[in-house]
Amino acid sequence: MIKYFRYNSPWEQFEEAVKQLKDLLERKKAFWLIGFLKDIDILVDESEGKVSEETENIIDDEILYLVRGILNNKQLDYESIKRGICRNYENIPEEDLEASVVSMSNKLELVKDTFEMDELLRRYKLKKNSVIHKMSGFDFNIITQSLPPDREEVKCAVINLSTQKRIAENEKEKDISFICDKDDVDVLIQLLQMVKTGMEGC
């Protein structure tokens, strides 16, 4: 085993992490963020409880890196992986090198076959090629306002959205903040539902 090599996790744990992530994605408890909020990332809904630290590390340190490599069109065939490892680590015994290359290569294949890479690639290209702004930030604060005449306290939200033109680049974002109450949020949800229905062909 090569010390500090990113793809060192035991195969069984990696396979289990892939399986868990697939299940979360299918149940809409996890979402791919592709050129929306992040360049390439995963958002996990933790309402059901957190995934184990082991799984979380594998998702963040291995699966995401493999997906980023695939979407960024990196050469990830057997020979390129071997060259990459030799460039970054010195004096590796041939046996360890071979095992690490095979392991990374197999992990890559498993990720490619488990997650819909063509779909992710389409989403990435859409965002990368478009000159229209992409959402790069979403934040909110819940605030309490005292309103006249009887100074009744009402909760509302200040939502902040940011956008930027290009993904995968550090550039100045455009920001907008707006205040809204619970009813406004219902309207927003309904409007977004209409957008979704429109995209689905209705």
Partner: peptide, 11 residues
């Protein structure tokens, strides 16, 4: 390694 390759082929 056989177990890894087998999982990939099943995939």
């Amino acid at each position: 390694l056989q177990i890894q390759f087998a999982a990939v082929i099943v995939g």
